[in-house]
């Protein structure tokens, strides 16, 4: 049983750290809100500890298939123009992005 007023399931710092990992730029208000909202989901996730899972294998694939492979045969690629037409920015038939190490 958790103590009343025990530590929240999730700290504000953790939320800020996770946002960085997830490449999301959250406002202070969003961080506050998510700390509460995600905290309550994580709280319920602790219910999972009520189940004895000792030695239970994880399910990664419901159908349990193995060794699904294809032949090593070249198939046509798709039209470059069609692909590049959807890109935000293009130069010399390549995808253009800001510099890797520009100022933050």
């Amino acid at each position: 049983m958790a103590e009343p007023d025990s530590q929240p399931a999730l700290s504000r710092d953790e939320v800020a750290h996770v946002a960085k990992l997830a490449l999301l730029d959250l406002t202070e208000e969003e961080i506050d809100l998510f700390t509460v909202q995600l905290g309550s989901v994580i709280e319920t996730a602790h219910d999972m500890n009520n189940l004895d899972l000792e030695g239970v294998q994880p399910t990664h694939h419901p159908l349990g298939l193995t060794n699904v492979v294809r032949e090593d045969v070249v198939r046509p690629s798709i039209d470059r123009a069609e692909v590049l037409s959807q890109a935000p920015d293009v130069e010399d038939d390549r995808f253009k992005v800001p510099p890797a190490l520009g100022e933050d």
Binding site: E91, D92, D93, R94, F95, K96, V97, P98, P99, A100, L101
Partner: peptide
């Protein structure tokens, strides 16, 4: 060099 580049182009 990567450190002074103005932009990057990507070929997949």
């Amino acid at each position: 060099r990567i450190s002074s580049a103005q932009y990057s182009l990507i070929d997949y």
